[in-house]
């Protein structure tokens, strides 16, 4: 083959400076990677859609789950996630401004915009960590039935959610904690809920203002409230107290909701984290003048693509997890 190449330049397949479709090799490969990554995320979101359509009548309502804002009390559904979305879009803007400044070979501008992008990304990752923490710790607590369904509690007069601690009655009893010195085999006792099922049921019987709310969504799009008698009957099937969420139990409703929440926002958060790290590396390269010497800032453009992609994915996660 080589004998047919008359030019002294390398040919295209050997990585010569021929640019198919007008895109440089690095940029094109970044795009192909992003396409494959987009397909991975689509697979996750489609799987989420599958589970949700399967349990369409009992799926948790997102505004009732994500209601907290840091440093405040009370219920502000969606506000914090909207803020996070805005922060991420904002850091996307500083990134594209860095790329733009790079085209014009303005080193100092690139440094500043890259710096702001890294800060924006760090704030976003921090917010996501906070969101996870709030979700894991839980809010009001609930009971889980034999079938793994969740029973939540509501105040009959105001219609507000009732936390377990609002009505559960502590039954005095002696609970001896197993200690390290008492056994050959010692296991940490792990997490113990604040109340037992008995205590919750006793509290429920004593307070006539409390009703049980099931997972089923009625025609108006709200969770179904049971009457006092139905509630008492339903409570008989309760087997354990659930506070917060993990991969096995979830006080907000369907456990699959928790699983997908951890999986998809976790995978996205990992992308943001790696994006921040890559941005940092490029930031230092810009500072020490690597791209100034190279004569172009294409590397900034390439990490820029990755960073915008992270934003792009979040736009979809935001819609399918928090809005729809």
């Amino acid at each position: 083959m080589n004998s047919t190449v008359t030019s002294t330049k390398e040919n295209a397949w050997a990585g010569g400076d021929n640019q198919p479709l007008g895109a440089s090799y690095g940029k094109m490969m970044m795009w192909f990677f992003l396409v494959s990554d987009a397909l991975t995320f689509s697979g996750f979101l489609a799987a989420y859609g599958f589970s949700r359509f399967k349990f369409i009548e009992t799926w948790p309502i997102a505004d009732e789950v994500f209601t907290h804002v840091p440093f405040t009390h009370g219920s502000y559904p969606m506000i914090y996630v909207a803020l996070m979305t805005f922060i991420l879009i904002m850091s996307s803007v500083t990134m594209v401004l860095a790329v733009d400044a790079g085209h014009k070979m303005q080193k100092n501008k690139v440094i500043w915009y890259m710096f702001l992008t890294v800060i924006g990304g760090a704030i976003f990752v921090g917010s996501q960590a906070w969101e996870w923490n709030t979700f894991i710790k839980g809010d009001k607590g609930a009971l889980e039935t034999k079938g793994g369904r969740i029973l939540q509690f509501v105040k009959a007069d105001s219609g507000e959610r009732a936390a377990l601690k609002d009505f559960a009655i502590t039954i005095p009893g002696e609970r001896v904690e197993h200690e390290n010195k008492n056994g050959v085999w010692f296991y940490d006792e792990g997490y113990v809920p604040s109340y037992s099922v008995k205590e919750v049921v006793k509290g429920f019987k004593a307070d006539s203002n409390i009703l049980v709310r099931t997972e089923t969504i009625n025609e108006e799009g709200h969770k179904t409230l049971l009457s006092r008698e139905e509630s008492l009957k339903k409570l008989e099937s309760a087997t354990q107290v659930v506070e917060g969420a993990n991969l096995i139990h979830n006080e907000y409703g369907s456990r699959l909701f928790g699983d997908f929440f951890f999986f998809i926002t976790g995978f996205h958060g990992f992308h943001v984290l790696s994006g921040v790290i890559i941005n940092l590396i490029i930031f230092f390269n810009v500072v020490i003048g690597t791209y100034e010497r190279r004569g172009h800032y294409e590397m900034v453009e390439k990490v820029g693509l990755y960073w915008h992609f992270v934003d792009l994915v979040w736009v979809f996660v935001f819609t399918f997890f928090y809005l729809v």
């Binding site: 996307s92 803007v93 990134m95 594209v96 790329v99 453009e301 820029g304 693509l305 915008h308 992609f309 934003d311 792009l312 736009v315 979809f316």
Partner: peptide
Amino acid sequence: KAYYIAWDFMH
């Protein structure tokens, strides 16, 4: 939104 992110931010 995805269209404008891809078309304008990702050039």
